[in-house]
């Protein structure tokens, strides 16, 4: 009896509840600048597409701040290319909201239209 071929499937990202590690804040954003060393500046975007203002403590300016984010090791290993304009999902540490880790590049069909 032939066996159905297994395909690699998307591993669901651990949710806050299921993760036994440090809690993370997961948000989406748009890449506004590509920096050396697979670092990116990402402008946070809320669930409805509105710009998100992340309070990092020291800021008093009006403009929503871009977050300095690096590419998750998992994505580097898979050679996921991220460029300016891409929508990404990133994780922030609750202890330092000015830094993020990009964990996902959203496909066109996952993009929330503004």
């Amino acid at each position: 009896m032939a066996s159905p071929r297994n395909r690699r499937t998307e591993t669901p990202a651990p949710t806050d509840e299921s993760s036994s590690k440090t809690p993370v804040i997961e948000i989406e954003g748009e890449v506004v600048d590509s920096l050396p060393n697979t670092m990116f500046l990402v402008k946070p975007i809320g669930p409805n597409g509105q710009p998100l203002r992340i309070q990092t403590g020291d800021d008093s300016d009006e403009e929503p701040k871009a977050i300095l984010a690096h590419l998750a090791g998992k994505m580097r290993l898979r050679f996921i290319r991220v460029g300016v304009g891409d929508r990404v999902r990133m994780q922030l540490s609750p202890y330092d909201l000015s830094r993020g880790r990009i964990t996902w590049r959203l496909r066109a069909d996952q993009r929330v239209e503004r």
């Binding site: 009896m1 032939a2 066996s3 159905p4 071929r5």
Partner: peptide, 16 residues
Amino acid sequence: RFVGHGIGRTMHESPQ
């Protein structure tokens, strides 16, 4: 869509 398979104590074993 379908593949052969390892076989032994069970019908479908590794590898595909």
